[in-house]
Design a protein around this nucleic acid. Sequence first.
DNA 1: TTTCGTGCAAACCATTTGCAGCAGC
DNA 2: GCTGCTGCAAATGGTTTGCACGAAA
Lengths: 147, 147
Amino acid sequence: MQHLSSYDPIIENLRKRGHRITAQRETILQIFKEEPHGNHLSVEELHSKLLEKGYRVSLATTYRTLKLLSVLGLLRELDFAEGHKHYELKQDTLPHQHIICTSCNMTLEFEDHFLETIGQEIASKHHFQVIDAQFKIFALCPRCKDK
Amino acid sequence: MQHLSSYDPIIENLRKRGHRITAQRETILQIFKEEPHGNHLSVEELHSKLLEKGYRVSLATTYRTLKLLSVLGLLRELDFAEGHKHYELKQDTLPHQHIICTSCNMTLEFEDHFLETIGQEIASKHHFQVIDAQFKIFALCPRCKDK
DNA sequence: TTTCGTGCAAACCATTTGCAGCAGC
DNA sequence: GCTGCTGCAAATGGTTTGCACGAAA
């Protein structure tokens, strides 16, 4: 595939670490960039969007790409305990965390001005190097709690 | 099975909500109570301990019991993103959270004096009813980060 | 006696993997 | 041209489920 020279920090990151820039990887990144800010996608959702748009990327490659980008710290891997994982771009997103309804699986993002910092402090106290700090509130949403 | 009249809040909770008190459920709770404070067990670990001690509880029942106790809010369901869940007793444990090494899966607990409160505040602002607030720091442990 | 809970084995489903061919560099 | 990446299909592994039997209340 021919690459335009448009600079992209994630692509650069991949290149620097010796990973190849393939059409599949660029396409997957493209989908994430088109998502509303802070939105997260499950593997199936991402794969469906790829197919809808006419790109032919196998499920296996989708899994492999998401895993790679997560390990490299370019994606955030979210687990809402409903059987599959969700992913969101890490760059450009304001720090935010999630409330998950354990009944209907609805999720809600809320801004986070200081949890990030708290995570850093706690980690360095124990000599750990932070990759991602996640605060998850499992709860019943307004609709479900009234049942 | 004959029950001694020893009072146990979890057993009482089950009884009140119309669930039966079976030998399997009592045994599983017993294992958790014997664990060091704040310790968490995977389903397989729990099942192995059951068999080691001579109790015959099927894997299926182990899964069903853990699910039930979690939904009832008596166990805390923890997901460390390594393919399976962990569980810990919710009663009697001081609020604590986890740092997880994404390389070797080692986990470390740290006390938490205020994250619980923060979770409550955020949730009520959005009219959610908290079940469990989990703060997880994914990081590299001292040993793994030097590789 | 009436459910509910359990054990067993089969089913499920998200994710991973072996391998041959293709593409990035 | 070398090697990593991809697609495909099969394998894997944690978790769930249908069903008949046994136990709690």
